[in-house]
Amino acid sequence: MDNIHDFYNKMEKGNIMLSFKGEVTSDLLTSILQIMESKMETLEEPPKIKKKVYNILVECLQNLYHHLDDDDFKTKINEKSALFMIRKVDGEYSIMTGNFIANENVELMEGRLDRINAMDKDELKMYYKEVLNNGEMSAKGGGGLGMIDIARKSGKKLEYKFDHIDDEYSFFSLNIKVAQ
């Protein structure tokens, strides 16, 4: 029973506004967005911040949703599990996600993130337009724009990490800070 108090303290110290672990479904996505929208309303966040955070939340959650859509990413215990957290520290929002990724996709993902992180604001805008206009639309509609859009809206570098789990999987952690 002590664990519950530990969990609480950890989340309190970490300024966690909302966290979720499990399968990201369409309904869950809708609920999280509604909860965060009303929380930010209560906190009287400036419309600019509210919109940026909301937009990034949508992209992150839909990334997780589509990612988990794929049977390739079932974990060993056959659970399409992901972690999702929102923190607010010293007035700065950060959105954190964690999910399993097949080892064979790690390099590709890393390459995309590094490419995005190497770009400044104008380069990101150019890149976004290029992918929007020329990129192939995936069946799910994303077509690789999500991460570019997240980087543009956040105004900060994307922090990420891959933890090797076993021969098949790694755990992909992503931390997105929203510039004030």
């Binding site: 919109k51 909301y54 937009n55 949508v58 992209e59 839909q62 929007l132 990129g135 639309m137 799910k140 509609g141 994303g142 077509g143 724009l145 999500g146 570019i148 859009d149």
Partner: peptide, 9 residues
């Protein structure tokens, strides 16, 4: 608001 999935459409 619009998501990147909508932006192509």
């Amino acid at each position: 608001y619009f998501n990147t999935s909508s932006s192509k459409c």
